[in-house]
Nucleic acid binder design. Structure first.
Lengths: 204, 204, 204, 204
DNA sequence: GATGAATGAGCCTTCATTCAT
DNA sequence: AATGAATGAAGGCTCATTCAT
């Protein structure tokens, strides 16, 4: 039984594991040096494989960054889904704000995200992944908002829900920007105001 | 005496004009190709001067980007000041939102801004310019909010004002991100919700 | 005994068939992309086997090209032999000329031949195959010429026959070059003149 | 006066001289290692300049080879023109044959020529240069043949002249091939037969 | 001030070849 | 016999930067 599986399955599994290795290494390198600053040689070394082999797993450097964005998106969607499965949706959303301030590697992560967005502005292939990603996330956020609204959601037009999800997203993206541009932010006061805004968005 | 002055003055003026030429050209090139995609040779050609001469006016490529950010900051501050000098501060802030949707070259500008922020995450010198820039802008925004609040501002702690300015800034930065990641945004609905949020921030 | 033979015989047969597969695939790839432009991976894929296995059948890439040249030589020799076995040798030679203009894949074949010759100029191992090949062909051509000459051949020194075979060969090789460098050749007129030259070479 | 010229003229002159340096070096390297075997780094080193600078003078590696072909064509045309300007055209043509056997670097030159032809079979840009080159040379050869024919040329159709020039060219190209494939050629006997063929082509 | 020729390090990518399975 | 994952050297090319003029 195991043998039957092994041939094609094992190879796919191995390739997938190798891909993860590269994505981990690349994320690390990109965070430290940026997308343009990190060389494929460095990524390969970090991933513990030869530069050439990365090209057996990915089409090119752009493809690596795209795969990272997709993986990040999946993780975010997973976390939103967890919230959706939880009890108190409203306070979970509010909790995201504090959480976002306390993430480790926040700066590097933010810088990489910004670079990806900038790159997407000129690289159509990456743009597609980014736009898709953002769309999936916003759809999940709409469900989140509907749940937070409770019965009131039923009488609210989709437009309005979508706009709220958009502004909510803008807020989080704005926070990401501040990670870089306002490192000495008074986080407590900001979080307080931010929560007031979020409440406005998830209440009737 | 006058002659003596004029000589050095003229030189400074000329140098300043040449710097502006480079900044214009570089802004153009960076917008089209991104910071890493634009070569000094291309910038020089666009500016109508030799590559070598750019190095008489700027220390290096990073220095050019930093100068662009500074110039952009001055322009934004100037526009905020105009609002401060006007009659109806509140509606002016709300007007910014619509305005931001209708700017020409919005995408390219946004992509460049994002790239600058990403770069700042790893380049301390650029980080300083960006942080300073954002601080100056936020300070102006605080005055703006105080004026919008009217008498209520007097009893409000600085902390609160600053936090509101911060969230306001986050909102605008979030919009910038959406220029790239949500190009098909329902702008009307989003603007409506956004204005509700802004009203929350500039009312007692 | 028979079983013992068949085992090794079958293996050899299979290996030979596999070699032919590779040679077919390689010829195809080389024709389309050139010797340096075709990768072993592409050849392997075209041949329907793994890259690694090609190295069980051939020493290396050069060895593949050498084998192709040898196979081509055998084919040419076979065709000359057919002519020798036929009735009218003279007109057969003249017929070659027209034939050479109407071969399908003429361009690609010519380009590959030229590349092989160029490569032979620097690769001694390949040079040996090419030189041997050309020698065998010229020897056959000498017999051809002798037959065309009829009784007159007997009083003609070997030197002269060889020189005629050589010039005949040069003519065909020159035609091959023109496949590339004179694609819009007036073939009719050229064939007419060419036949006049050939007649000079195969007549007393 | 000299100063007036110097600015644009000197720069062009310098660039031209630098280009010649590269062409000399590249010819040398290509002859020794072949087009694919010679690296830009090696060429640069041989030319006494940096690899990067070659790209200020040529678009890319293909462009270098194309320039070499053009230069070679000019040289051949120049030599044909010399013959045209001379007294005895007929014997000059016959002389080419002996000459071609005694050229130094004949092998390497032939190998490079063959490689260029092979390359042209797949590189359209190079193909254009090669075809143009061959056309120019054939046109000159037609004049040569007309002169050799003397008064008889006037009653001969252009078609016939062209075909003769073509076959003449084929013969020389065939010789080039033999440089590689028949290094131990009995040159004396071959030259004798070859001259007989040439005489057939330049006589009424 | 101004030029642009020149540098050379470094990058992404390819590919012949090997070897554990 | 056969696979295909893996290697790693090497190649073409770019570009920030310098410097003689």
């Amino acid at each position: 039984m195991c043998a039957a599986l092994s041939s094609s399955q094992a190879q796919t599994d191995r390739a997938l594991a190798r891909r993860q290795q590269v994505l981990d290494a690349a994320t690390d390198c990109f965070r430290r040096r940026g997308f343009h600053g990190a060389s494929m040689a460095e990524i390969a070394k970090t991933a513990g494989m030869s530069p050439g082999h990365i090209y057996n797993l990915f089409e090119n450097k752009d493809d690596v960054i795209a795969a990272i964005v997709e993986r990040d998106r999946d993780e975010i969607v997973r976390r939103i889904q967890e919230t959706l499965d939880g009890d108190d949706v409203s306070s979970a959303i509010l909790g995201y704000i504090d959480e976002s301030f306390h993430e480790p590697e926040r700066d590097a992560e933010a810088a990489l995200n910004l670079e990806v967005l900038a790159e997407a502005g000129r690289n159509p292939k990456l743009a597609k992944v980014v736009v898709d990603s953002e769309t999936v996330i916003r759809d999940k956020a709409m469900i989140l908002i509907r749940m937070a609204l409770g019965p009131a959601a039923e009488t609210m037009p989709d437009d309005e829900i979508e706009a709220r999800a958009t502004v909510l997203g803008a807020l989080f993206n704005g926070l990401m920007v501040f990670t870089v541009s306002q490192p000495h932010l008074n986080q407590q006061a900001a979080a307080r105001v931010m929560q007031r805004v979020v409440r406005l968005l998830i209440e009737p």
